[in-house]
Every structure is written in structure tokens, then in C-alpha cells.
Computed example of a mutant assay.
Amino acid sequence: MRWVWTGVAVGVSVLGAGAILAQTELNQTSGEKIFKANCAACHAGGNNIVEPEKTLKKEALARFGMDSQGAIIKQVTGGKNAMPAFGGELSTEEIRQVASYVLEMADQDWQK
């Protein structure tokens, strides 16, 4: 009986991990879709067509103090200089998903 109980517990743990992984993948996919629909015109591949030195690459994000989710959320929500504000167009959750996506892609040097 103990073996069966352990098997059930392991099965539940695996299912729980699968649900968490599925939710993470959903968020990443959502962040990517939102980014492509709203940001990629200027930031495709992590670049910046308006101010080329201010890319979304890891080094540039660090240099300009944009290497945290909070900083990116603030920038996307309120805009700055040539970048428009998206706070009126995207929900708080959508902006959070975009910030997560940007940081993830910066860690991967925008190679996916």
C-alpha cells in the first residue's frame, strides 16, 4: 500500500509541475504575442530603430537602468522620449508579460 501511495504523490507532484510549466509557457507566449503586436515595429530582434544605442540587449538594458521588470514596466506604461506610453492600451498584466518576455529574450541575446 505504501508503494501505491508514493506513486500517487509523485503523480500529483508531476501534474502540479506540469500545470506550472504550462502557465509559464502561456505567459511567455502571451508576452511574445503582445511584444510582436505592439513593440516589434521599433524593437524587432531586441534592436531600437529610433535610438540605436538603446537596444533591448542585456548590456544596453543594464547601462540604461532598464534591466529589471519594474523599470521596463514603468517605461512601457508611461513611455519616455520617443517611446509612446502603452498604459492606456495594455492592461497591467499584459505589460508585466511584455517585461518578462523582454528580460527572458535579453538573457538569450534575442536568439530563440
Rank of each mutant, 00 (worst) to 15 (best):
E93T: 13
H43W: 03
L61M: 05
L90N: 03
Q97E: 13
G87V: 02
A9K: 08
E59K: 15
M83K: 05
Q75C: 05
V8C: 08
F35E: 00
A44D: 12
I72T: 00
A99D: 04
W5G: 01
T92C: 04
A19C: 10
E51H: 04
L103D: 02
A62Q: 15
I72Q: 02
A44G: 10
A62S: 14
G65R: 10
V4T: 13
G88N: 15
A17C: 11
L21A: 14
V50R: 04
K74I: 03
A19R: 11
R2G: 15
L90F: 05
A60G: 07
T24D: 15
G65Q: 14
Q23A: 13
A82L: 09
A9F: 11
H43R: 03
G79M: 05
G7F: 04
K54Y: 10
Q97S: 07
A40C: 07
V4N: 12
A99Y: 00
A60R: 05
E51W: 06
A22R: 13
Q75T: 12
D67W: 04
T6H: 15
H43A: 03
V98R: 00
S30C: 02
E53M: 10
G18T: 04
V98H: 00
A99I: 01
Q69E: 15
V76P: 00
H43Q: 06
G45P: 04
M1V: 12
S91H: 05
F35K: 01
S91V: 03
G87M: 02
A82S: 14
N27Q: 14
S30I: 05
E89F: 11
N47R: 12
M1G: 09
A60E: 06
N81T: 07
Y101W: 08
T92F: 09
E89R: 04
V76I: 13
G87H: 02
A37G: 06
